[in-house]
């Protein structure tokens, strides 16, 4: 599936939620089930510091395709990371570099990707795209 096909799939899934509680319960579950980052990458070099929560991001490339693993100390942040990884991991580096992540806004989680929130997510998305540029 392409990046946009996955985004559309997520938007469709989120349309089933009746209220914010259901949505956040789902995100929290995603956070709990995110495959763990290899502990050796949970170091200073892979850390994206936020004022509120911290994020660790690792990228591996295989034949111009980028595979992301990530983690956060906050579970809601981690749940959103799980969505970002689902959308961008395994995609061609070129596509990652030029991706437009419209699904975040569409599923009503824009506030978590606001620079003022300072949870590390904005910098993480930027970092993911940079990996895309570097590995393309």
């Amino acid at each position: 599936m392409t990046i946009n096909e996955i985004q559309d799939e997520i938007i469709e899934e989120f349309a089933f939620f009746d209220d914010w509680m259901e949505k956040y319960e789902y995100i929290i579950d995603l956070g709990k089930s995110l495959p763990l980052i290899d502990p050796k990458y949970k170091d200073e070099a892979h850390l994206i510091k936020g004022c509120q929560s911290q994020v660790w991001l690792h990228a591996a490339n295989e034949e111009k395709q980028v595979d992301f693993t990530a983690d956060s100390d906050a579970i809601i942040t981690k749940g959103i990371i799980a969505l970002l990884v689902r959308v961008l991991s395994g995609q061609p580096a070129e596509a990652v570099a030029h991706s437009d992540l419209y699904f975040i806004d569409k599923i009503g989680l824009k506030e978590h990707l606001s620079p003022t929130r300072s949870n590390g997510l904005v910098s993480m998305v930027k970092q993911m795209k940079m990996y895309g540029v570097a590995l393309a």
């Binding site: 956040y24 906050a74 949870n119």
Partner: peptide, 22 residues
């Protein structure tokens, strides 16, 4: 077992303004 950011996010959804972080 919960990060302050998570607690603060849920309180925010309930209309409760608290500070989280350091």
């Amino acid at each position: 077992g919960s990060h302050p950011y998570d607690v603060g996010t849920i309180l925010d959804k309930l209309g409760i303004a608290v500070r989280t972080g350091h």
